[in-house]
């Protein structure tokens, strides 16, 4: 994100703070409830935010895309599916960073199923992300969603590959 954007965001935030003060001068009877909810969530967030950011930072610096690509390109079979999930959880950053890497691996002959599984894991099974989910939605919710996601993402990768290769043959 650019420097100017950040400054803009802080200005918007300042406006929101001033507007909020104004609103609760008009509705003083609601201000106690707002304060309670606002500070409850703020504290819950700040309690874990530095830890989450440190984990993201460590992953960003220690896990290089090249290493991930090297392992993913070689995988196959059932073990390959599991490795694709695990590798997807490691790199940090938004999914679009993965697009060029996936393209390169596909050209080198990596399996479409593994690539789709890898991208899905990259998108929604990040360790820092799961910790925030744990904090705000609870262990049961987080663990169940994680388990279902892993199962369905693998099935989805396998079906998508069949369709991808099926249509590739028919168009040739």
């Amino acid at each position: 994100m650019k420097k100017g954007n950040i400054l803009k965001e802080y200005i918007i935030l300042a406006v929101i703070v001033i507007a909020t003060v104004g609103i609760f001068l008009v509705y003083p009877q609601k201000s106690a409830l707002f304060e309670k909810n606002f500070f409850n969530y703020l504290v819950q967030m700040l309690e874990i935010f530095p830890a989450v950011m440190i984990l993201s930072g460590l992953l960003k610096i220690f896990v290089s895309k090249d290493i991930v690509g090297k392992y993913l390109g070689k995988t196959s079979g059932f073990r390959g599916l599991i490795i694709a999930v695990l590798l997807g959880t490691l790199p940090e950053g938004p999914l679009y960073i993965a697009f060029p890497l996936v393209k390169e691996l596909r050209e080198k002959g990596a399996k479409v199923s593994n690539l789709i599984i890898f991208m899905s894991a990259w998108a929604c099974i990040k360790i820092p992300q799961e910790l925030v989910e744990l904090q705000f939605l609870g262990l049961k919710f987080m663990a169940l969603r994680l388990t279902l996601t892993i199962i369905f993402v693998i099935i989805m990768g396998l079906i998508a590959e069949k369709i991808y290769e099926g249509t590739a043959k028919s168009t040739v």
Partner: peptide
């Protein structure tokens, strides 16, 4: 990594 963490 800590610097990156602080920045983000």
């Amino acid at each position: 990594a800590l610097k990156v963490a602080l920045k983000s």
